[in-house]
């Protein structure tokens, strides 16, 4: 019963958050300068043309009325029609979503592997030069933002040592058999490892650029809490049982030390998803972020709204997943 109440409460707060996001994004993009009609008509269009086009898109009505119309549509799953492409926003946005999700998850996996290994190696060699080297690398990784890492990677692995593709999601000339948008996942299911390799070769650099700063944060925080955990009594007791250092770190300390890191990773992962906007642009990766920038440039109001709402849904979903994981890892929370 308690569990059901928590879920209900969660859904309710999520709805409030989404409503807030909807209101803010709707009015903010209408208050900032620039309007879609000006982008659609050639310079020198008559007042009459502008008025007619505005009426066609409902932009002549008061802002509150526009909001009411849009919200009523959203309630029925209709997010409006994109002004630039004249296609339903929902279809456009959902079509791009898998690309961004795959990129973000790939980046997250990379960050956890890189940051986790750094933390483990640093803890294993604490007090030695190894730990110092890891701290220095962490500091460097953290002080450079993701898009700069993107440029650096492009120069190194795209130009000097061309092993990865620097743009796009997949080589355009390839024949794609996919029925879903999750190319990377589906290529594995279909055992098309050639396509999988091509997708990874495209995705590797943008994902790594997104992963490096997060990896540094994970590395630093996890190492810190691992080192604290390694001084606790139950770890000392495990040492007296004849276990070696590596076993003690992995089996006794890691799970408890990972808890504070997990909370932070949840928050940072949403930042990472935000980072996809610029990184996708940089690597011409056809995801949501790239679409968002186009939508803003073209003042495609319905599309911007759709994308922002979708990002908000993703953020709340990530937070929910983190909370659930936390309960799984921490037995003390399970019965609460």
């Amino acid at each position: 019963m308690a569990f059901l109440r928590i879920i209900l409460l969660r859904v309710l707060t999520t709805l409030v958050t989404l409503a807030g996001v909807a209101v803010i994004v709707f009015f903010v993009i209408r208050v900032v300068p620039g309007n879609p009609i000006a982008m659609m008509l050639p310079p020198g269009a008559t007042e009459d043309d502008i008025a007619r086009l505005s009426a066609l898109y409902g932009l002549d009505k008061p802002m509150v009325t526009q909001f009411g119309i849009w919200l009523a549509g959203v309630m029925q799953g209709d997010f409006g029609t994109s002004i630039t492409t004249r296609q339903p926003v929902l279809g456009l946005v959902l079509g791009r979503l898998p690309a961004t999700l795959e990129l973000s998850i790939m980046a997250l996996v990379m960050a956890v592997i890189l940051g986790g290994s750094a933390a483990l190696i640093g803890t294993r060699g604490r007090g030695t030069r190894t730990e110092g080297a890891i701290d220095v690398a962490n500091g460097m990784a953290l002080s450079v933002p993701d898009f700069l890492w993107g440029l650096v990677l492009m120069l190194v692995f795209g130009v000097l040592l061309p092993v990865f593709h620097i743009s796009g999601r997949v080589t355009p000339s390839l024949d794609l058999p996919f029925t879903t948008g999750f190319y990377l996942f589906e290529s594995l299911i279909r055992l098309r490892f050639d396509l999988w390799a091509d997708l990874v070769a495209h995705m590797f650099m943008p994902a790594l650029a997104l992963a490096i700063p997060l990896a540094a944060i994970i590395g630093q925080l996890l190492k810190q809490s691992l080192k604290e955990t390694m001084n606790l009594d139950y770890v000392t007791l495990a040492r007296t049982k004849g276990y070696g250092e590596t076993h003690v770190i992995l089996r006794e300390a890691l799970r408890n030390a990972a808890l504070p890191t997990l909370t932070l990773v949840g928050v940072q992962f949403t930042f990472l998803i935000g980072g996809t906007v610029i990184i996708e642009r940089l690597f011409s990766y056809e995801g949501l972020g790239n679409m968002a920038i186009d939508a803003v440039i073209n003042r495609d109001l319905p599309l911007i709204q759709g994308i922002v709402i979708l990002f908000a849904v993703i953020f709340t979903a990530v937070n929910l997943i983190v909370d659930l994981l936390y309960a799984v890892l921490n037995p003390r929370l399970r019965h609460a």
Binding site: L232, D233, Y234, T236, L237, A238, T240, K241, G242, Y243, E252, R255, N256, L329, N330, P331, R332
Partner: peptide, 20 residues
């Protein structure tokens, strides 16, 4: 050798068992 022939009874039972 220590693991095979020795053991510790620690001071604080509240912190000497792994919580997870």
């Amino acid at each position: 050798r220590i693991g095979a022939s020795c053991a510790l009874i620690p001071q604080d039972p509240l912190t000497a068992l792994n919580p997870s």
